[in-house]
């Protein structure tokens, strides 16, 4: 089994796919920042942000269902914000009895919780659209355009190049373990050995993975030297942005900043 399908990039010819990665990265970050700065309880703005995200999803031809399904993955963290429903002071809404404790939900508490959940939901959708419509090399190019140090960008690039190789290696290690020591994928069956034993075996696998990574990095280094590598990360010069890209960027920023002004004027 190969893990190439791990790559969330979905090829396509939509306008969102075609948009320059630099513009996409900047607009995604601006969108997430706008969501973060929107005050709690500014419901119309949240609905507009959601509509914007859904609009881009439809435009990207990824399918709204695909994005929403992936967006659920980030959902469990919402639990961390749940207590705020009961702890913010304000007008009590309803009470829950948990043994000796009475939990009283307040209006500002519920508002803050729903706002956090919405912010997180629209932000993760924007990030999914970015990752699903942009190939990783284009993301690297966008990072370079954002003045992230070249060395760091090269490390990112090399990591991406070998991530799938090493993930395959991990899958082989795990298949070997399953075939030898037995692993129960049903909760009611007991897997082999004690917990400590299992942890140590897993540690041994991690150790051998690192060993192989060390040795592989040596070979890669030799191969790079043999091809004239001298420590300098060279890359093609960045292409100039087309005027259509600039217009998209300007319109996007204008839209997001007017949403933000609207939110801050009426709800701050």
């Amino acid at each position: 089994m190969h893990v190439h399908f791990l790559d969330p990039y979905r090829p396509g010819y939509s306008p969102v796919h075609a948009l320059d990665a630099r513009i996409k990265l900047v607009l995604t970050l601006a969108f997430i920042l706008t969501a973060a700065l929107t005050p709690a309880g500014a419901w119309p703005v949240y609905i507009l942000l959601l509509a914007l995200a859904l609009g881009v999803e439809i435009l990207s031809e990824l399918g709204v269902g695909y994005v929403l399904k992936r967006a659920v993955l980030a959902f469990p963290f919402v639990l961390a914000a749940l207590p705020v429903v009961f702890t913010l002071p304000g007008k009590p809404l309803f009470s829950l009895m948990l043994g000796p404790w009475a939990l009283t939900a307040t209006q500002p508490g519920v508002e803050r919780f729903v706002s956090i959940a919405l912010k997180s939901w629209v932000s993760v959708q924007a990030a999914i659209v970015l990752a699903s419509t942009t190939e990783f090399p284009d993301l690297l190019m966008a990072m370079r355009a954002l003045r992230i140090p070249r060395l760091l960008v090269s490390i990112f690039g090399l990591m991406w190049r070998y991530l799938f190789v090493l993930a395959d290696e991990v899958i082989r290690l795990m298949r070997a373990r399953i075939s030898r020591s037995g692993e129960a994928d049903r909760a009611d069956l007991k897997p082999g050995g004690s917990v400590i034993w299992r942890a140590r075996i897993t540690g041994g696998m991690a150790g051998s993975l690192f060993l192989r990574a060390f040795e592989r990095s040596d070979r890669i280094y030799m191969a790079m030297l043999a091809r004239g590598y001298d420590g300098e990360a060279r890359s093609e010069p960045l292409q100039r942005l087309s005027s259509a890209s600039w217009v998209t960027l300007a319109l996007g920023m204008l839209l997001l900043s007017s949403l933000l002004v609207f939110a801050l004027l009426f709800w701050a």
Binding site: F156, M159, R161, L166, A213, G231
Partner: peptide, 11 residues
């Protein structure tokens, strides 16, 4: 630096 960091990050 680049090959070592990159491959170990992948690992």
């Amino acid at each position: 630096q680049v090959p070592l960091m990159g491959v170990l990050a992948a690992a």
